[in-house]
Design a protein around this nucleic acid. Structure first.
Length: 553
RNA sequence: UGGGGUGUAGCCAAGUGGUAAGGCACGGGACUUUGACUCCCGCACUCGUAGGUUCAAAUCCUGCCACCCCAGCCA
Protein backbone atom coordinates (compact mmCIF):
# COMPACT_ATOMS: atom_id res chain seq x y z
CA UNK A 1 0.00 0.00 0.00
CA UNK A 2 0.94 3.60 -0.22
CA UNK A 3 3.55 5.27 1.89
CA UNK A 4 1.07 7.17 3.95
CA UNK A 5 -1.74 4.77 4.46
CA UNK A 6 -3.77 6.47 7.13
CA UNK A 7 -6.80 8.67 7.25
CA UNK A 8 -9.50 9.92 9.57
CA UNK A 9 -11.75 6.94 8.86
CA UNK A 10 -9.06 4.56 10.04
CA UNK A 11 -8.70 6.62 13.18
CA UNK A 12 -12.42 6.34 13.94
CA UNK A 13 -12.43 2.62 13.29
CA UNK A 14 -9.33 1.97 15.35
CA UNK A 15 -11.03 3.67 18.22
CA UNK A 16 -14.27 1.74 17.67
CA UNK A 17 -12.61 -1.65 17.78
CA UNK A 18 -10.22 -0.96 20.61
CA UNK A 19 -10.97 -1.55 24.27
CA UNK A 20 -14.14 0.18 25.31
CA UNK A 21 -15.07 1.08 21.74
CA UNK A 22 -18.52 0.45 20.30
CA UNK A 23 -17.25 -2.46 18.20
CA UNK A 24 -14.69 -3.84 20.60
CA UNK A 25 -13.50 -7.23 19.45
CA UNK A 26 -15.67 -7.25 16.33
CA UNK A 27 -14.61 -7.80 12.74
CA UNK A 28 -14.82 -4.67 10.63
CA UNK A 29 -17.39 -5.03 7.89
CA UNK A 30 -18.05 -2.51 5.12
CA UNK A 31 -20.13 -2.46 1.96
CA UNK A 32 -20.18 -0.85 -1.47
CA UNK A 33 -23.81 0.00 -2.24
CA UNK A 34 -24.31 1.36 -5.76
CA UNK A 35 -27.77 2.07 -7.10
CA UNK A 36 -28.09 0.13 -10.37
CA UNK A 37 -29.15 3.13 -12.41
CA UNK A 38 -26.00 3.84 -14.40
CA UNK A 39 -22.45 2.76 -15.01
CA UNK A 40 -19.68 3.14 -12.48
CA UNK A 41 -17.24 5.99 -13.08
CA UNK A 42 -13.90 7.00 -11.65
CA UNK A 43 -15.64 8.72 -8.77
CA UNK A 44 -17.23 5.44 -7.72
CA UNK A 45 -13.79 3.91 -7.86
CA UNK A 46 -12.87 6.14 -4.95
CA UNK A 47 -15.71 4.75 -2.88
CA UNK A 48 -14.77 1.25 -4.00
CA UNK A 49 -11.21 1.88 -2.93
CA UNK A 50 -12.30 3.24 0.45
CA UNK A 51 -14.85 0.51 1.15
CA UNK A 52 -12.69 -2.42 0.13
CA UNK A 53 -9.39 -1.08 1.33
CA UNK A 54 -10.75 -0.11 4.72
CA UNK A 55 -12.13 -3.58 5.28
CA UNK A 56 -8.87 -5.14 4.17
CA UNK A 57 -6.87 -2.82 6.36
CA UNK A 58 -8.67 -4.12 9.45
CA UNK A 59 -8.79 -7.72 8.34
CA UNK A 60 -12.51 -7.45 7.59
CA UNK A 61 -14.82 -7.93 4.65
CA UNK A 62 -16.62 -5.74 2.16
CA UNK A 63 -19.97 -6.67 0.66
CA UNK A 64 -21.34 -5.65 -2.70
CA UNK A 65 -24.95 -4.57 -2.49
CA UNK A 66 -27.24 -3.17 -5.12
CA UNK A 67 -29.20 -0.38 -3.47
CA UNK A 68 -32.35 -1.01 -5.45
CA UNK A 69 -35.13 0.59 -3.45
CA UNK A 70 -36.53 2.67 -6.29
CA UNK A 71 -37.61 0.61 -9.31
CA UNK A 72 -38.42 3.77 -11.26
CA UNK A 73 -34.79 4.43 -12.05
CA UNK A 74 -33.16 1.07 -11.97
CA UNK A 75 -32.41 -1.71 -14.39
CA UNK A 76 -30.86 -5.17 -14.42
CA UNK A 77 -28.54 -4.07 -17.25
CA UNK A 78 -26.64 -1.93 -14.80
CA UNK A 79 -26.27 -4.70 -12.24
CA UNK A 80 -24.17 -6.81 -14.58
CA UNK A 81 -22.12 -3.87 -15.81
CA UNK A 82 -21.38 -2.77 -12.27
CA UNK A 83 -20.20 -6.23 -11.26
CA UNK A 84 -17.99 -6.50 -14.31
CA UNK A 85 -16.37 -3.12 -13.72
CA UNK A 86 -15.67 -3.88 -10.08
CA UNK A 87 -14.05 -7.18 -11.01
CA UNK A 88 -11.98 -5.43 -13.61
CA UNK A 89 -10.78 -2.93 -11.05
CA UNK A 90 -9.63 -5.86 -8.98
CA UNK A 91 -11.96 -5.85 -5.99
CA UNK A 92 -13.46 -9.11 -4.76
CA UNK A 93 -16.71 -9.30 -2.82
CA UNK A 94 -16.47 -13.09 -2.60
CA UNK A 95 -19.93 -14.59 -2.23
CA UNK A 96 -21.30 -11.55 -0.48
CA UNK A 97 -23.44 -10.09 -3.21
CA UNK A 98 -26.80 -8.73 -2.10
CA UNK A 99 -29.75 -6.65 -3.14
CA UNK A 100 -31.38 -4.13 -0.85
CA UNK A 101 -34.61 -5.65 -2.14
CA UNK A 102 -33.63 -8.90 -0.40
CA UNK A 103 -34.66 -7.16 2.80
CA UNK A 104 -38.05 -5.78 1.76
CA UNK A 105 -39.89 -8.20 4.08
CA UNK A 106 -37.77 -7.18 7.08
CA UNK A 107 -38.10 -3.53 6.22
CA UNK A 108 -41.84 -3.90 6.15
CA UNK A 109 -41.78 -5.44 9.62
CA UNK A 110 -39.53 -2.70 10.99
CA UNK A 111 -41.91 -0.09 9.64
CA UNK A 112 -44.74 -1.89 11.44
CA UNK A 113 -42.64 -1.85 14.56
CA UNK A 114 -42.17 1.90 14.33
CA UNK A 115 -45.87 2.45 13.79
CA UNK A 116 -46.72 0.21 16.72
CA UNK A 117 -44.37 2.17 18.94
CA UNK A 118 -46.01 5.40 17.85
CA UNK A 119 -42.84 6.37 16.01
CA UNK A 120 -44.34 6.37 12.53
CA UNK A 121 -47.69 7.10 10.96
CA UNK A 122 -49.50 7.02 7.69
CA UNK A 123 -49.75 10.50 6.23
CA UNK A 124 -52.25 11.40 3.56
CA UNK A 125 -50.68 14.67 2.53
CA UNK A 126 -50.02 14.87 -1.20
CA UNK A 127 -46.48 15.57 -2.34
CA UNK A 128 -47.35 19.21 -2.95
CA UNK A 129 -49.07 19.60 0.39
CA UNK A 130 -46.18 18.01 2.17
CA UNK A 131 -43.84 20.44 0.49
CA UNK A 132 -46.01 23.37 1.49
CA UNK A 133 -46.26 22.18 5.07
CA UNK A 134 -42.59 21.41 5.36
CA UNK A 135 -42.02 24.75 7.03
CA UNK A 136 -38.87 26.79 6.66
CA UNK A 137 -35.88 27.97 8.61
CA UNK A 138 -38.01 29.66 11.22
CA UNK A 139 -41.26 27.70 11.01
CA UNK A 140 -41.80 24.06 11.86
CA UNK A 141 -43.43 21.56 9.53
CA UNK A 142 -46.99 20.36 10.02
CA UNK A 143 -49.02 17.28 9.34
CA UNK A 144 -52.64 16.77 10.37
CA UNK A 145 -52.06 13.00 10.40
CA UNK A 146 -49.23 12.95 12.87
CA UNK A 147 -51.38 11.86 15.81
CA UNK A 148 -53.29 9.18 14.01
CA UNK A 149 -53.65 6.17 16.32
CA UNK A 150 -51.13 3.39 15.71
CA UNK A 151 -53.91 0.92 15.06
CA UNK A 152 -55.32 3.03 12.26
CA UNK A 153 -51.89 3.62 10.70
CA UNK A 154 -51.12 -0.08 10.91
CA UNK A 155 -54.33 -0.86 9.09
CA UNK A 156 -53.68 1.73 6.39
CA UNK A 157 -50.10 0.54 5.98
CA UNK A 158 -51.34 -3.02 5.39
CA UNK A 159 -53.79 -1.76 2.84
CA UNK A 160 -51.05 0.26 1.15
CA UNK A 161 -49.12 -2.97 0.83
CA UNK A 162 -52.15 -4.81 -0.51
CA UNK A 163 -52.34 -2.29 -3.32
CA UNK A 164 -55.55 -0.63 -2.26
CA UNK A 165 -54.28 2.89 -2.92
CA UNK A 166 -52.91 4.57 -5.99
CA UNK A 167 -49.39 6.01 -6.29
CA UNK A 168 -48.80 9.08 -4.17
CA UNK A 169 -52.00 8.72 -2.21
CA UNK A 170 -50.24 8.32 1.13
CA UNK A 171 -46.87 7.71 2.74
CA UNK A 172 -45.52 6.32 5.95
CA UNK A 173 -43.62 8.96 7.87
CA UNK A 174 -41.26 8.61 10.80
CA UNK A 175 -42.56 10.62 13.74
CA UNK A 176 -39.47 12.52 14.83
CA UNK A 177 -39.40 16.30 15.12
CA UNK A 178 -41.36 18.69 12.94
CA UNK A 179 -39.41 21.63 14.29
CA UNK A 180 -35.91 20.23 13.81
CA UNK A 181 -33.34 22.54 12.31
CA UNK A 182 -32.29 19.49 10.32
CA UNK A 183 -34.95 19.13 7.65
CA UNK A 184 -34.20 15.43 7.30
CA UNK A 185 -35.67 14.96 10.75
CA UNK A 186 -38.96 16.75 10.05
CA UNK A 187 -40.95 13.52 9.90
CA UNK A 188 -39.31 12.10 6.78
CA UNK A 189 -41.24 9.72 4.52
CA UNK A 190 -40.00 6.16 4.92
CA UNK A 191 -42.40 4.34 2.57
CA UNK A 192 -44.10 5.42 -0.62
CA UNK A 193 -46.55 3.76 -2.97
CA UNK A 194 -45.29 2.88 -6.43
CA UNK A 195 -47.19 0.39 -8.54
CA UNK A 196 -44.23 -0.60 -10.60
CA UNK A 197 -42.58 -3.85 -11.40
CA UNK A 198 -39.19 -4.18 -9.75
CA UNK A 199 -36.28 -5.79 -11.61
CA UNK A 200 -35.68 -8.19 -8.72
CA UNK A 201 -38.94 -8.56 -6.84
CA UNK A 202 -41.29 -8.25 -9.80
CA UNK A 203 -44.80 -7.32 -8.67
CA UNK A 204 -44.47 -8.62 -5.15
CA UNK A 205 -44.47 -5.10 -3.77
CA UNK A 206 -46.20 -1.85 -4.61
CA UNK A 207 -44.73 0.04 -1.68
CA UNK A 208 -41.04 0.78 -1.55
CA UNK A 209 -38.88 2.00 1.34
CA UNK A 210 -37.02 5.30 1.11
CA UNK A 211 -33.23 5.43 1.25
CA UNK A 212 -33.01 6.96 4.70
CA UNK A 213 -35.10 4.19 6.19
CA UNK A 214 -33.78 1.34 4.06
CA UNK A 215 -30.08 1.96 4.19
CA UNK A 216 -29.45 1.59 7.90
CA UNK A 217 -31.56 -1.57 7.90
CA UNK A 218 -29.66 -3.02 4.95
CA UNK A 219 -26.41 -2.31 6.73
CA UNK A 220 -27.65 -3.81 9.98
CA UNK A 221 -29.00 -6.94 8.28
CA UNK A 222 -25.57 -7.60 6.81
CA UNK A 223 -23.70 -6.96 10.02
CA UNK A 224 -21.96 -3.91 8.61
CA UNK A 225 -19.95 -2.15 11.30
CA UNK A 226 -18.95 0.90 9.30
CA UNK A 227 -21.17 2.39 6.64
CA UNK A 228 -18.92 4.67 4.60
CA UNK A 229 -20.61 7.19 2.36
CA UNK A 230 -20.10 10.60 0.85
CA UNK A 231 -20.40 13.96 2.51
CA UNK A 232 -23.88 14.87 1.33
CA UNK A 233 -25.25 12.26 3.74
CA UNK A 234 -23.71 13.92 6.73
CA UNK A 235 -26.93 15.64 7.69
CA UNK A 236 -28.74 12.31 7.29
CA UNK A 237 -26.66 10.65 9.97
CA UNK A 238 -29.00 11.64 12.82
CA UNK A 239 -31.78 9.93 10.91
CA UNK A 240 -29.61 6.90 10.21
CA UNK A 241 -28.92 6.64 13.91
CA UNK A 242 -32.57 7.18 14.78
CA UNK A 243 -33.63 4.25 12.60
CA UNK A 244 -30.93 2.02 14.07
CA UNK A 245 -31.94 3.04 17.57
CA UNK A 246 -35.68 2.56 17.15
CA UNK A 247 -35.89 -0.58 15.05
CA UNK A 248 -34.87 -3.86 16.63
CA UNK A 249 -32.07 -4.46 14.12
CA UNK A 250 -29.37 -7.06 14.74
CA UNK A 251 -26.46 -4.60 14.86
CA UNK A 252 -25.74 -0.92 15.12
CA UNK A 253 -23.55 0.24 12.24
CA UNK A 254 -21.76 3.56 12.32
CA UNK A 255 -21.97 5.90 9.35
CA UNK A 256 -18.80 7.82 8.43
CA UNK A 257 -18.74 10.32 5.59
CA UNK A 258 -15.92 11.28 3.24
CA UNK A 259 -15.57 13.79 0.41
CA UNK A 260 -16.29 12.54 -3.05
CA UNK A 261 -13.89 12.96 -5.90
CA UNK A 262 -13.80 15.82 -8.37
CA UNK A 263 -11.48 15.94 -11.37
CA UNK A 264 -11.05 19.06 -13.44
CA UNK A 265 -12.21 18.97 -17.07
CA UNK A 266 -14.32 15.98 -16.14
CA UNK A 267 -18.03 15.49 -15.64
CA UNK A 268 -18.76 13.05 -12.86
CA UNK A 269 -22.50 13.25 -12.62
CA UNK A 270 -24.46 10.13 -13.44
CA UNK A 271 -27.34 12.24 -14.69
CA UNK A 272 -25.15 14.19 -17.07
CA UNK A 273 -23.29 11.15 -18.26
CA UNK A 274 -26.56 9.42 -19.02
CA UNK A 275 -27.57 12.49 -20.94
CA UNK A 276 -24.47 12.21 -23.13
CA UNK A 277 -25.22 8.58 -23.85
CA UNK A 278 -28.93 8.99 -24.49
CA UNK A 279 -28.51 12.00 -26.74
CA UNK A 280 -25.82 10.36 -28.82
CA UNK A 281 -23.02 12.73 -27.94
CA UNK A 282 -20.90 9.67 -27.32
CA UNK A 283 -21.05 6.14 -28.65
CA UNK A 284 -22.08 4.65 -25.31
CA UNK A 285 -21.20 4.34 -21.65
CA UNK A 286 -17.87 2.89 -22.74
CA UNK A 287 -16.94 5.66 -25.15
CA UNK A 288 -13.27 6.31 -24.39
CA UNK A 289 -14.03 9.95 -23.71
CA UNK A 290 -16.29 8.98 -20.83
CA UNK A 291 -14.96 8.96 -17.26
CA UNK A 292 -16.74 5.66 -16.69
CA UNK A 293 -14.62 2.70 -15.71
CA UNK A 294 -15.47 0.94 -18.97
CA UNK A 295 -14.63 4.11 -20.88
CA UNK A 296 -11.30 4.47 -19.15
CA UNK A 297 -10.64 0.80 -19.78
CA UNK A 298 -11.09 1.33 -23.52
CA UNK A 299 -8.95 4.40 -23.35
CA UNK A 300 -6.11 2.31 -22.04
CA UNK A 301 -6.25 2.93 -18.32
CA UNK A 302 -5.11 -0.02 -16.27
CA UNK A 303 -6.93 -1.07 -13.10
CA UNK A 304 -3.76 -0.55 -11.10
CA UNK A 305 -3.40 3.02 -12.29
CA UNK A 306 -6.89 3.87 -11.12
CA UNK A 307 -6.42 2.20 -7.77
CA UNK A 308 -3.13 3.99 -7.21
CA UNK A 309 -4.72 7.28 -8.22
CA UNK A 310 -7.22 7.03 -5.39
CA UNK A 311 -4.75 5.62 -2.94
CA UNK A 312 -2.47 8.59 -3.43
CA UNK A 313 -5.20 11.17 -3.44
CA UNK A 314 -6.09 10.11 0.03
CA UNK A 315 -9.30 10.36 1.97
CA UNK A 316 -10.51 13.53 3.62
CA UNK A 317 -13.59 15.66 4.12
CA UNK A 318 -12.47 18.50 1.89
CA UNK A 319 -14.38 18.97 -1.32
CA UNK A 320 -11.49 18.81 -3.72
CA UNK A 321 -10.89 18.84 -7.43
CA UNK A 322 -7.87 16.85 -8.46
CA UNK A 323 -5.88 17.69 -11.58
CA UNK A 324 -6.55 15.36 -14.46
CA UNK A 325 -2.79 15.41 -14.97
CA UNK A 326 -2.46 13.39 -11.80
CA UNK A 327 -4.58 10.57 -13.20
CA UNK A 328 -2.45 10.58 -16.33
CA UNK A 329 0.67 10.49 -14.23
CA UNK A 330 -0.57 7.38 -12.44
CA UNK A 331 -1.25 5.69 -15.75
CA UNK A 332 2.12 6.59 -17.28
CA UNK A 333 3.88 5.34 -14.20
CA UNK A 334 2.14 1.98 -14.41
CA UNK A 335 2.53 1.63 -18.16
CA UNK A 336 6.13 2.70 -18.02
CA UNK A 337 7.09 -0.12 -15.75
CA UNK A 338 4.63 -2.76 -16.88
CA UNK A 339 3.47 -2.29 -20.45
CA UNK A 340 5.27 -3.59 -23.48
CA UNK A 341 6.92 -0.97 -25.57
CA UNK A 342 6.39 -0.97 -29.27
CA UNK A 343 7.15 1.29 -32.18
CA UNK A 344 4.54 3.18 -34.12
CA UNK A 345 4.89 5.99 -36.58
CA UNK A 346 1.96 8.33 -36.37
CA UNK A 347 2.85 10.74 -39.12
CA UNK A 348 5.05 8.73 -41.45
CA UNK A 349 7.67 9.76 -43.96
CA UNK A 350 9.65 7.22 -45.99
CA UNK A 351 13.28 6.62 -45.13
CA UNK A 352 15.39 4.90 -47.78
CA UNK A 353 18.74 3.44 -46.88
CA UNK A 354 20.55 3.70 -50.17
CA UNK A 355 23.46 1.42 -49.34
CA UNK A 356 21.28 -1.35 -47.92
CA UNK A 357 20.71 -4.29 -50.25
CA UNK A 358 17.43 -4.46 -52.09
CA UNK A 359 15.11 -7.34 -51.29
CA UNK A 360 16.90 -8.28 -48.08
CA UNK A 361 15.14 -8.54 -44.77
CA UNK A 362 16.82 -8.53 -41.41
CA UNK A 363 15.47 -8.96 -37.90
CA UNK A 364 16.38 -7.29 -34.64
CA UNK A 365 15.74 -8.35 -31.10
CA UNK A 366 14.13 -5.48 -29.26
CA UNK A 367 13.48 -5.57 -25.54
CA UNK A 368 9.83 -5.35 -24.61
CA UNK A 369 10.53 -3.34 -21.53
CA UNK A 370 13.98 -2.15 -20.57
CA UNK A 371 12.96 -2.09 -16.91
CA UNK A 372 11.79 -5.69 -16.98
CA UNK A 373 14.26 -8.01 -18.70
CA UNK A 374 11.95 -10.90 -17.78
CA UNK A 375 9.51 -9.56 -20.34
CA UNK A 376 12.03 -10.70 -22.91
CA UNK A 377 12.31 -9.41 -26.43
CA UNK A 378 10.43 -9.47 -29.69
CA UNK A 379 11.72 -9.64 -33.25
CA UNK A 380 11.28 -6.59 -35.40
CA UNK A 381 11.90 -6.79 -39.12
CA UNK A 382 14.08 -4.34 -40.99
CA UNK A 383 14.72 -3.59 -44.65
CA UNK A 384 15.90 -0.98 -47.09
CA UNK A 385 12.71 1.05 -46.81
CA UNK A 386 11.40 2.21 -43.46
CA UNK A 387 8.87 4.63 -42.08
CA UNK A 388 10.03 7.25 -39.64
CA UNK A 389 8.26 10.03 -37.86
CA UNK A 390 7.76 13.11 -39.94
CA UNK A 391 9.14 15.39 -37.29
CA UNK A 392 12.23 13.28 -36.77
CA UNK A 393 13.57 14.91 -39.93
CA UNK A 394 14.21 18.57 -40.59
CA UNK A 395 15.50 20.02 -43.79
CA UNK A 396 16.96 22.97 -41.91
CA UNK A 397 17.70 21.99 -38.31
CA UNK A 398 16.71 24.48 -35.72
CA UNK A 399 18.89 25.18 -32.73
CA UNK A 400 19.30 22.20 -30.43
CA UNK A 401 17.70 19.85 -32.95
CA UNK A 402 19.80 16.73 -33.04
CA UNK A 403 17.68 14.26 -34.91
CA UNK A 404 17.82 13.70 -38.66
CA UNK A 405 18.96 16.44 -41.04
CA UNK A 406 21.26 16.34 -44.04
CA UNK A 407 24.72 15.28 -42.96
CA UNK A 408 23.70 14.22 -39.45
CA UNK A 409 23.98 10.82 -37.87
CA UNK A 410 21.25 9.27 -35.85
CA UNK A 411 20.54 5.85 -34.37
CA UNK A 412 17.57 3.78 -35.47
CA UNK A 413 16.40 2.23 -32.22
CA UNK A 414 17.96 -1.23 -31.80
CA UNK A 415 19.07 -1.33 -35.44
CA UNK A 416 21.80 0.75 -37.09
CA UNK A 417 23.42 4.12 -37.05
CA UNK A 418 22.51 6.00 -40.20
CA UNK A 419 23.62 9.22 -41.81
CA UNK A 420 21.25 11.45 -43.72
CA UNK A 421 22.41 11.98 -47.28
CA UNK A 422 19.52 13.82 -48.82
CA UNK A 423 15.79 14.00 -49.38
CA UNK A 424 13.21 14.52 -52.07
CA UNK A 425 10.25 16.85 -52.11
CA UNK A 426 7.07 16.94 -54.09
CA UNK A 427 5.70 19.90 -56.04
CA UNK A 428 4.23 21.37 -52.88
CA UNK A 429 7.58 21.37 -51.15
CA UNK A 430 6.61 18.56 -48.85
CA UNK A 431 9.35 16.09 -47.99
CA UNK A 432 8.38 12.73 -49.46
CA UNK A 433 11.51 10.67 -48.93
CA UNK A 434 14.53 10.92 -46.72
CA UNK A 435 17.70 9.23 -47.90
CA UNK A 436 20.44 7.85 -45.74
CA UNK A 437 23.32 5.42 -45.61
CA UNK A 438 23.82 2.97 -42.78
CA UNK A 439 26.95 1.95 -40.96
CA UNK A 440 27.13 -1.86 -41.34
CA UNK A 441 29.40 -2.06 -38.31
CA UNK A 442 26.77 -0.58 -36.04
CA UNK A 443 24.39 -3.53 -35.94
CA UNK A 444 22.24 -3.23 -32.83
CA UNK A 445 22.92 0.47 -32.70
CA UNK A 446 26.40 0.57 -31.24
CA UNK A 447 29.30 2.24 -32.98
CA UNK A 448 32.61 0.40 -33.17
CA UNK A 449 34.82 3.45 -33.10
CA UNK A 450 33.29 4.87 -29.97
CA UNK A 451 31.72 7.91 -31.59
CA UNK A 452 28.71 9.23 -29.76
CA UNK A 453 25.33 9.28 -31.41
CA UNK A 454 23.21 11.98 -29.92
CA UNK A 455 19.76 10.94 -31.01
CA UNK A 456 17.83 7.74 -31.39
CA UNK A 457 14.61 7.55 -33.35
CA UNK A 458 11.93 4.94 -33.78
CA UNK A 459 11.05 3.35 -37.09
CA UNK A 460 8.90 0.73 -38.72
CA UNK A 461 9.79 -1.62 -41.59
CA UNK A 462 7.85 -0.52 -44.67
CA UNK A 463 7.54 -4.09 -45.94
CA UNK A 464 5.81 -5.45 -42.88
CA UNK A 465 4.23 -2.38 -41.33
CA UNK A 466 0.58 -2.50 -40.36
CA UNK A 467 -1.59 0.41 -41.42
CA UNK A 468 -3.59 1.93 -38.66
CA UNK A 469 -5.96 4.64 -37.75
CA UNK A 470 -5.17 6.46 -34.59
CA UNK A 471 -7.98 8.03 -32.66
CA UNK A 472 -6.87 10.95 -30.59
CA UNK A 473 -9.06 11.55 -27.60
CA UNK A 474 -9.05 14.86 -25.88
CA UNK A 475 -11.22 16.00 -23.07
CA UNK A 476 -14.90 15.97 -23.75
CA UNK A 477 -15.22 19.33 -22.14
CA UNK A 478 -13.60 22.66 -22.67
CA UNK A 479 -14.61 24.46 -19.53
CA UNK A 480 -12.36 23.89 -16.56
CA UNK A 481 -15.14 22.67 -14.32
CA UNK A 482 -18.27 21.97 -16.31
CA UNK A 483 -19.44 19.74 -13.54
CA UNK A 484 -19.62 22.69 -11.20
CA UNK A 485 -21.09 25.14 -13.62
CA UNK A 486 -24.82 25.30 -13.35
CA UNK A 487 -25.03 25.99 -17.05
CA UNK A 488 -25.88 23.91 -20.04
CA UNK A 489 -22.83 21.72 -19.93
CA UNK A 490 -23.70 20.14 -23.25
CA UNK A 491 -22.66 23.39 -24.88
CA UNK A 492 -19.20 22.79 -23.62
CA UNK A 493 -18.49 19.55 -25.37
CA UNK A 494 -15.39 20.09 -27.41
CA UNK A 495 -16.11 19.36 -31.07
CA UNK A 496 -12.51 18.24 -31.45
CA UNK A 497 -12.54 15.83 -28.60
CA UNK A 498 -12.19 13.00 -31.06
CA UNK A 499 -9.75 13.22 -33.90
CA UNK A 500 -8.91 10.38 -36.25
CA UNK A 501 -5.55 10.21 -37.93
CA UNK A 502 -5.22 7.83 -40.82
CA UNK A 503 -2.09 6.41 -42.34
CA UNK A 504 -0.18 5.64 -39.20
CA UNK A 505 2.27 2.77 -39.43
CA UNK A 506 2.65 0.19 -36.74
CA UNK A 507 5.18 -2.44 -35.96
CA UNK A 508 4.04 -5.80 -37.33
CA UNK A 509 3.90 -7.35 -33.87
CA UNK A 510 0.85 -5.21 -33.22
CA UNK A 511 -1.20 -7.02 -35.83
CA UNK A 512 -2.12 -9.54 -33.18
CA UNK A 513 -2.76 -7.03 -30.41
CA UNK A 514 -5.75 -7.80 -28.27
CA UNK A 515 -8.49 -5.27 -27.69
CA UNK A 516 -7.90 -3.18 -24.59
CA UNK A 517 -4.28 -4.25 -24.39
CA UNK A 518 -2.11 -1.35 -23.34
CA UNK A 519 1.26 -0.50 -24.79
CA UNK A 520 3.71 2.22 -24.32
CA UNK A 521 4.91 3.80 -27.50
CA UNK A 522 8.37 5.20 -27.57
CA UNK A 523 8.33 8.93 -27.25
CA UNK A 524 4.70 9.08 -28.32
CA UNK A 525 2.94 8.35 -25.10
CA UNK A 526 0.66 5.51 -24.31
CA UNK A 527 -1.85 3.66 -26.39
CA UNK A 528 -4.48 1.08 -26.03
CA UNK A 529 -5.56 -1.36 -28.67
CA UNK A 530 -9.21 -0.52 -28.72
CA UNK A 531 -10.70 -2.54 -31.50
CA UNK A 532 -9.74 -4.29 -34.64
CA UNK A 533 -11.72 -3.22 -37.63
CA UNK A 534 -13.18 -5.86 -39.87
CA UNK A 535 -11.19 -4.67 -42.83
CA UNK A 536 -8.21 -6.98 -42.71
CA UNK A 537 -5.24 -5.77 -40.79
CA UNK A 538 -6.50 -2.36 -39.86
CA UNK A 539 -6.09 -1.70 -36.21
CA UNK A 540 -7.71 1.14 -34.44
CA UNK A 541 -5.81 2.57 -31.55
CA UNK A 542 -6.75 5.08 -29.00
CA UNK A 543 -4.08 7.47 -28.14
CA UNK A 544 -4.65 9.31 -24.95
CA UNK A 545 -3.08 12.68 -24.95
CA UNK A 546 -2.62 14.97 -22.08
CA UNK A 547 -4.83 18.00 -22.10
CA UNK A 548 -2.06 20.47 -22.60
CA UNK A 549 -0.79 18.59 -25.64
CA UNK A 550 -4.17 18.05 -27.10
CA UNK A 551 -5.38 19.61 -30.25
CA UNK A 552 -8.08 21.60 -28.58
CA UNK A 553 -7.93 25.35 -28.98
C1' U B 1 -32.09 33.54 8.56
C1' G B 2 -32.06 27.20 11.08
C1' G B 3 -29.11 22.64 11.01
C1' G B 4 -24.67 20.00 9.37
C1' G B 5 -19.62 20.42 7.39
C1' U B 6 -14.77 22.31 5.41
C1' G B 7 -10.56 26.00 5.04
C1' U B 8 -2.30 23.99 5.01
C1' A B 9 1.38 26.18 -2.06
C1' G B 10 -1.51 26.38 -8.86
C1' C B 11 -3.84 21.00 -7.45
C1' C B 12 -4.18 16.84 -3.85
C1' A B 13 -2.33 16.01 1.13
C1' A B 14 0.46 14.76 6.03
C1' G B 15 0.45 17.15 10.52
C1' U B 16 -3.34 15.95 17.03
C1' G B 17 1.50 22.02 21.71
C1' G B 18 8.14 21.66 20.18
C1' U B 19 9.41 25.30 15.29
C1' A B 20 5.48 23.13 7.95
C1' A B 21 6.22 15.30 5.21
C1' G B 22 5.14 13.50 0.42
C1' G B 23 2.96 13.50 -4.57
C1' C B 24 1.14 16.20 -9.11
C1' A B 25 2.18 20.58 -11.86
C1' C B 26 6.15 23.98 -12.69
C1' G B 27 11.61 25.71 -13.23
C1' G B 28 16.86 24.23 -13.51
C1' G B 29 20.69 20.38 -14.04
C1' A B 30 22.76 15.23 -14.82
C1' C B 31 22.13 10.71 -17.36
C1' U B 32 20.09 8.15 -21.50
C1' U B 33 19.64 2.99 -27.56
C1' U B 34 14.50 8.23 -28.39
C1' G B 35 14.41 15.04 -26.23
C1' A B 36 10.88 9.48 -23.09
C1' C B 37 12.11 7.15 -18.57
C1' U B 38 15.33 7.65 -14.33
C1' C B 39 18.14 10.70 -11.01
C1' C B 40 19.47 15.30 -8.51
C1' C B 41 18.25 20.50 -7.15
C1' G B 42 14.57 24.44 -6.47
C1' C B 43 9.47 25.51 -5.29
C1' A B 44 4.67 27.85 2.11
C1' C B 45 9.62 32.18 7.36
C1' U B 46 3.88 30.15 7.34
C1' C B 47 -1.25 27.03 7.75
C1' G B 48 -8.84 31.50 5.68
C1' U B 49 -8.61 35.97 9.01
C1' A B 50 -8.20 39.09 13.66
C1' G B 51 -7.13 38.70 18.52
C1' G B 52 -6.03 35.70 23.08
C1' U B 53 -3.48 31.66 26.20
C1' U B 54 1.72 29.68 26.34
C1' C B 55 8.76 29.69 27.03
C1' A B 56 6.62 27.63 22.42
C1' A B 57 0.41 27.53 18.35
C1' A B 58 -1.24 25.00 11.73
C1' U B 59 -2.41 22.45 16.38
C1' C B 60 -5.79 25.19 22.43
C1' C B 61 -9.61 29.54 23.23
C1' U B 62 -12.71 33.73 21.21
C1' G B 63 -14.62 36.67 17.28
C1' C B 64 -15.00 37.29 12.09
C1' C B 65 -14.72 35.72 6.74
C1' A B 66 -15.24 32.24 2.65
C1' C B 67 -17.01 27.91 0.47
C1' C B 68 -19.99 23.15 0.41
C1' C B 69 -24.48 20.08 1.89
C1' C B 70 -29.89 19.85 3.71
C1' A B 71 -36.80 21.94 3.06
C1' G B 72 -37.72 14.60 -3.11
C1' C B 73 -43.15 10.35 -1.96
C1' C B 74 -34.32 10.35 -5.40
C1' A B 75 -29.99 7.81 -3.74
Amino acid sequence: MSENDSNFIFDFISEDISEGGRFEGMTVHTRFPPEPNGYLHIGHAKALYIDFHTAEKFGGLCNLRMDDTNPTKEDEEYVDAIKEDIKWLGYDWGDRFYYASDYFPEMYRFAEELITKGLAYVCELTADQMKEMRGDLSNPARSPFRDRPAKESLDLFRRMKEGEFEDGRMTVRARIDLASGNFNMRDPAIYRINHMSHHQTGDAWCIYPMYDFAHPIEDAMEGITHSLCSLEFESHRPLYDWIIENCSVPCKPRQIEFARLGINHTVLSKRKLRNLVENGFVSGWDDPRMPTLCGLRRRGYTPASIRVFHERNGVSKVNSIVDYAFLEHCLREDLNSNAHRVMAVISPVKLIIDNYPEGVSDEFEVENNPEKPEDLTRKVSFSKELWIENDDFMEEPSRKYFRLFPGNEVRLKSAYVIKCTGFTKDADGKVTEVHATYDPDSRGGNTTDGRKIKATIHWVDARTAVDAQIRLYGSLFDTPEPDLADCNYLEHISPDSLNVISGAKLEASLASAQPAESFQFLRLGYFCADSIESAAGRLVFNRSVSLKDSFRV
